[in-house]
Write a protein that binds this DNA or RNA. Structure first.
Lengths: 337, 337
DNA sequence: CAGCCAATGTACAGCGCTAGAAAGATATTT
DNA sequence: AAATATCTTTCTAGCGCTGTACATTGGCTG
């Protein structure tokens, strides 16, 4: 079953390849009669242009790569969905690369990108350091997401983590919490995200005239609900008292909800809980989860805008965009009446 | 910043293109000294082969498409992750196509596949009908997932839904449930999945000598936790009594948990709940969710095996594989003591 | 009716890489 | 030393499509 080529259609229709190509591309200056004849040949043979060949000829692949740590992390799977939809809207296809937070895989993404496979890359680094990225960002189209690394020359989109954490903390303060914990600092995590969120949290306490009690900064071992559960359970067992928790991540928040539930605390009665990322998980818990909500569609649109400008030839310094956020208020930390 | 080409390397090293190509491909018969010289030139220029060109020349793209209804559905995002990992293991890249259960998008997947973009497609159809798929499966490499459509000529992997539903029902019967409900039949859903699961459910009741009460078959309007919640809430309000629920989907199960919780029922005390797909959602709920667990890694491996045989040239009739399943037993329907 | 322009169509040289044939170099055998 | 075998390397024809340069046609103008 040999594939039908442009030339096969051309022969059947008795015209040149270019004319067939013109029909395929809806080039205006083709005589209606000819166009019809060619179209008939196309239909008859079931011709589909070979995209690989087209790519080689045009130099454009029409494809962008989205490199994220884990496909099945709710935040990233939602992000992927938005990316896929935005890409379709803009005429691109998305190829998803899972880096698993492995520095080598992350590096591979940046190197492969140059292999002419994709026109650009949207990359959410976790482990690669600023300088490392700067070194590999060899002038091709790249947009970074998140706060892990921010090379000056590279475009970058994020939310204002400090102010978001501040909002979350203020929300808890407003509903009467005074002993507010922060979950979770990760031993192995040297990314800026946690630090910034912690900073906003401190600022919120300061504003409320509450002193930060180091005992209330909970540490987790890894980014899982399980680790969050363990961390909160241990705090409870240590006798730490708290009436609110700002969680660095929805999964931590879910672990926290479970820990509180298992230890007989009511949420939000005894402890109010705020998560982060506003993933769909939060809608499924009991109680439902209040969560910091990055404006994902804005973020996706901004990332694409920057990327397309790069693809179009922009070679200037990196643009660093902040997109909005809000607080999705649900049962675990409701509005004050 | 013009891209470095094979010929640039060849010129710098003072050899022919083919020799450079041989080095790149680790072809054995290259004199060590020459190999070193070429490698030095490659490193110096930072040469990366252009994959698009390679593809055009070899006819292999090294890429497969995974077409699923929604990237951010937990089942599919977990599946995607496994697919991505298996693909990497086998030397492929995955391009994910989101069909959104739209018949036109589903059809587009099958048509685009022929555009020389990918070597094969793994496709989980939802809306396309058997005949429609059969018509478009024009001899290229395709493997289907799920139960929606099963054209004879096309390869296909699924779990035994009847027997899995039977297992779930038996589990509830064994723990003493007698009035077992089934959630949810979807008005608009004509896929085989629901019917098969319903069949296994009936069979389980029959075995236990329990008559099927039509009142216990709960209908939902769409595939969301929200719809599940509503369906169960309405049943409770109608005064329907039941002590167990087999859910067609983890999201329904989560809706059910919430409905039961909100109405003051305890799970599993008053009502035991079994979900389906064993997504990570089930580990995060309170109580945690017992769920039918398709062996995803087996499924992924089987799909790839079939696909690779197709890619390698197999042109016979469709193989229809059943992969295993188990029941992930957690708190919502625990083991009987 | 020559002279021109615009509208249509054709020819063909790449895009960067691969792979098989052919040539050149070196080693082995008789 | 000639003949043969074995390595190494070069040559070159595509892969299927696009875009530029050029050829052709027909309609109009003056």
């Amino acid at each position: 079953m040999a594939r039908i080529r442009l030339i096969d259609v051309a022969e059947l229709a008795g015209v040149s390849m270019k004319t067939v190509s013109n029909v395929v591309h809806s080039y205006p200056h083709v005589a209606p009669a000819l166009r019809e004849k060619v179209q008939a040949a196309i239909d008859q043979l079931g011709y589909r242009p070979n995209l690989t060949a087209r790519r080689l000829a045009t130099g454009k692949t029409g494809m962008i790569a989205l490199a994220i740590p884990e496909i099945d992390h709710p935040y990233f799977s939602e992000l992927s969905r938005h990316m896929a939809e935005e890409a379709t809207r803009r005429g691109y296809r998305v190829i998803i690369e899972q880096t698993l937070s492995d520095p080598d895989l992350e590096r591979a993404v940046l190197i492969d990108r140059e292999a002419g496979l994709v026109d650009g890359v949207i990359f959410h680094p976790v482990r690669m350091e600023t300088l490392d990225i700067a070194k590999l960002d060899a002038g091709t189209s790249l947009v970074l997401l998140g706060e892990a690394a921010i090379p000056v020359m590279t475009d970058h989109v994020m939310i204002d983590n400090v102010s978001a954490a501040l909002d979350a903390t203020r929300h808890l303060v407003a509903s009467g919490c005074r002993r507010i914990a922060f979950l979770g600092v990760i031993a192995a995590d040297i990314t800026g995200s946690t630090n910034q969120r912690l900073l906003g949290y401190q600022q919120g306490l300061l504003e409320a005239g509450v002193r930060l009690d180091p005992e209330l900064v909970f540490t987790a071992l890894e980014f899982t609900a399980e680790a969050g559960l363990r961390s909160v359970t241990e705090a409870i067992e240590r006798g730490v008292r708290f009436d609110g928790v700002v969680c660095r991540d929805d999964r931590f928040a879910i672990g926290a909800l479970k820990a509180l539930h298992d230890s007989g605390r009511s949420v939000p009665g005894d402890v109010a809980v705020v998560g982060w990322d506003n993933t769909f998980l939060g809608a499924y818990t009991s109680p439902t989860l209040t969560s910091v909500a990055p404006k994902k569609t804005e973020l996706v649109a901004a990332a694409f805008d920057l990327l397309e400008e790069r693809i179009a030839g922009y070679r200037g310094v990196g643009r660093h965009l902040i997109v909005g956020h809000s607080l999705a208020v649900r049962e675990s930390a409701p509005h004050t009446p």
